[in-house]
Computed example of a mutant assay.
Amino acid sequence: MKKRILIISIFSLVFLACSNSKIDGTWVLCYTDSQSKVAIFNEVFTFKNGHFESESFSGPAFYEKSSGLFELKKNQLILNDSINLSIGLISADSLMIVDETTSYTFKKLNDSLKKTETDKIIISGKKFEVDLDGHHFSNVSYLNGKISFDSQPFEESHEYYKRINHNGFDIIFQEFAAPKVIKKIYNDTILLYGFHEKIYEIKMWEE
């Protein structure tokens, strides 16, 4: 009987580990709802070996870090044995969390987007020209925790941002835009990738 219990226990642990590994990696919230609206808050999760870490941002009044244990059971993601999230979809690169009114789509970050420690990319206090997937903007400033826009279609506007290093990814969260990952700098041009319905390339260089 003891041997049978031990076998069952080992099988359960192996099954749980295999289930949890489906979600291992770093996932960033890209959009909400079927209309692909930009999320009103930013969030990134890293899942690994039954543990999770998360960071959330929705403007200067809210920034939060949390961590703990997670378990994946069928269509339920359970955090710290107390928070149950319903999974609408999980694939190699997409994770959809759903509640009664909204769906939240996360995209998995490829490890190739991690920035090496030797790359020192400074954006705070600087003004840039930006090429966003073929669309050009000028007078984009990063100052005092705000991104300021002084060119069409963003004339004289600003929004708050927060730059974080999460699991080796250099991430920029913005109040009203999809998240961006800083990849590298070459020939004085900063290369970033944005995440919404698709991954798009962004280039910035100082004016």
Rank of each mutant, 00 (worst) to 15 (best):
Phe47Val: 10
Glu206Tyr: 10
Phe41Val: 02
Ser66Ala: 08
Lys65Pro: 01
Ile190Thr: 05
Gly25Gln: 10
Ala178Trp: 01
Asp99Pro: 02
Val130Asp: 03
Thr32Ile: 15
Ser86Ile: 03
Tyr31Asn: 11
Leu69Met: 01
Arg4Leu: 06
Leu85Glu: 02
Phe70Ala: 01
Glu156Asn: 09
Ile172Lys: 07
Val181Phe: 02
Leu132Pro: 08
Gln35Leu: 14
Gly194Tyr: 04
Ile90Glu: 02
Phe62Lys: 13
Ser21Glu: 12
Tyr104Glu: 04
Ile172Arg: 08
Arg4Ser: 01
Phe195Gln: 07
Leu13Arg: 14
Phe149His: 07
Leu79Gly: 00
Asn144Ala: 13
Ser34Asn: 15
Ser141Asp: 04
His196Lys: 10
Leu13Thr: 11
Asp99Asn: 08
Asp119Ser: 14
Pro153Tyr: 15
Met204Gly: 09
Glu201Trp: 07
Trp205His: 14
Ser124Leu: 06
Asp81Phe: 00
Ala17Pro: 01
Arg163Phe: 01
Asp33Cys: 03
Leu192Thr: 05
Ile202Gly: 13
Leu192Trp: 03
Phe47Glu: 12
Gly134Pro: 08
Tyr142Ile: 04
Asp33Ala: 02
Phe128Tyr: 09
Glu201Cys: 04
Ser66Leu: 02
Ile164His: 00
Lys120Pro: 07
Gly168Thr: 01
Asn144Arg: 07
Leu13Tyr: 15
Ser86Met: 01
Ile10Trp: 10
Ser19Asp: 15
Val98Lys: 10
Ile171Cys: 05
Asn139His: 15
Leu192Ser: 11
Gly59Pro: 01
Lys73Met: 00
Ser148Trp: 03
Phe195Gly: 06
Cys30Glu: 08
Lys114Ser: 05
Thr116Ala: 12
Ser66Thr: 05
Leu109Trp: 06
Asn167Val: 00
Lys37Cys: 15
Glu100Asp: 14
Pro179Ala: 05
Asn110Pro: 03
Ser151Cys: 14
Pro179Gly: 05
Tyr186Cys: 10
Ser157Asn: 06
Glu155Gln: 10
Ile190Lys: 09
Tyr142Thr: 03
Ser138Met: 13
Ala177Tyr: 13
Glu159Gln: 07
Phe149Trp: 11
Asp111Lys: 14
Pro60His: 12
Trp27Gln: 05
Ser54Met: 14
Lys48Gly: 06
Ala17Lys: 12
Phe176His: 03
Ser112Met: 09
Lys146Ala: 14
Val130Glu: 05
Asp33Ile: 04
Asp93Tyr: 09
Ala17Gly: 14
Leu72Arg: 06
Lys65Tyr: 12
Tyr186Ala: 14
Ser157Gln: 11
Ile87Asn: 00
Gly50Asn: 02
Lys74Val: 01
Ser67Arg: 05
Val98Tyr: 03
Arg163Lys: 07
Ser54Val: 06
Lys107Met: 04
Ala61Tyr: 15
Ser86Asn: 07
Ile199Pro: 09
Glu155Gly: 00
Leu77Asn: 01
Leu69Pro: 00
Ser82Arg: 08
